[in-house]
Design a protein around this nucleic acid. Structure first.
Length: 222
DNA sequence: CACCAGGCAAGTA
DNA sequence: TACTTGCATGGT
């Protein structure tokens, strides 16, 4: 059984409703969270962000004023804290030195150009850049993550060997360029991935259970 | 105890 | 270009 991007979206939205992503309260929080969540559970990231919030450090210049060692200590619960402290600093240096610490100024840059600028920062890869653009900036750049890949590959809608940009193009070329839609779609994919499509799949009760690939069985060789 | 979680960059051949 | 490895905490 084959399904269109729109049909999959409608299934997920009917089952789960709006997800209200990103789970951060301000654009700057989203920015920080996008780095901290790299290969890490959101529960751990929340602890790190709460450490910053407790000390009123959820704004660019305040974080940039910290030493790397101080920042490492605050974000320790998020894991990889040494490398992430440097990655955050790289991002903050870019934001402060190039845009005066203003997210509004940064997001005034045209999407393709800003995306290129973000990717030049050491520690910002495709997914982190797209998360910042879409969820902090409200710009229509589709986010591909491990769940996006797993859910779509297991149903045979993309190959397991599809790379980041093949998957991104699959969504961006098949949907209207609408940030609200990209936002909701990705959030719904994470939702269904968490509930049904982890390493050990639980297809019982999954909204996509009747959209299994031809041959019936879910492929799990990822 | 082992395994997993919303990546990325650096090193190797 | 195409692999492989290091990075680290906290939950199950």
């Amino acid at each position: 059984m084959t399904a269109t991007l729109g049909e999959v979206y409608d299934r997920l939205f009917a089952a789960y409703g709006p997800q209200h992503w990103w789970p951060g309260q301000s654009p700057f929080e989203v920015l920080i969270g996008a780095v901290l969540v790299q290969n890490t559970s959101w529960e751990n990231v929340k602890k790190a962000i709460d450490n910053l919030r407790r000390e009123n450090l959820l704004e660019p210049r305040a974080v940039y004023a910290l030493s790397v060692e101080e920042l490492e200590e605050k974000i320790r619960p998020a894991g990889y804290f040494r490398i992430k402290a440097r990655r955050l600093r790289n991002l903050l240096a870019f934001l402060v030195e190039r845009y005066g610490g203003s997210l509004d100024a940064m997001f005034r840059t045209a999407l393709p150009e800003l995306r290129e600028q973000l990717l030049e920062i050491n520690g910002i890869g495709p997914e982190t850049a797209d998360s910042i653009l879409l969820y902090a900036g409200g710009l229509p750049s589709f986010v591909v993550d491990a769940y996006t890949h797993r859910v779509f590959a297991r149903h045979g809608w993309i190959g397991f060997d599809a790379d980041y940009y093949q998957i991104k193009d699959h969504f961006e070329s098949g949907l209207p360029q609408d940030a609200r839609l990209f936002n909701e779609y990705h959030a719904l994919l994470v939702r269904v991935g968490k509930e049904h499509c982890r390493k050990t799949p639980r297809c019982q009760g999954c909204p996509l259970a009747d959209l299994l690939p031809p041959g019936g069985a879910l492929r799990t060789d990822d």
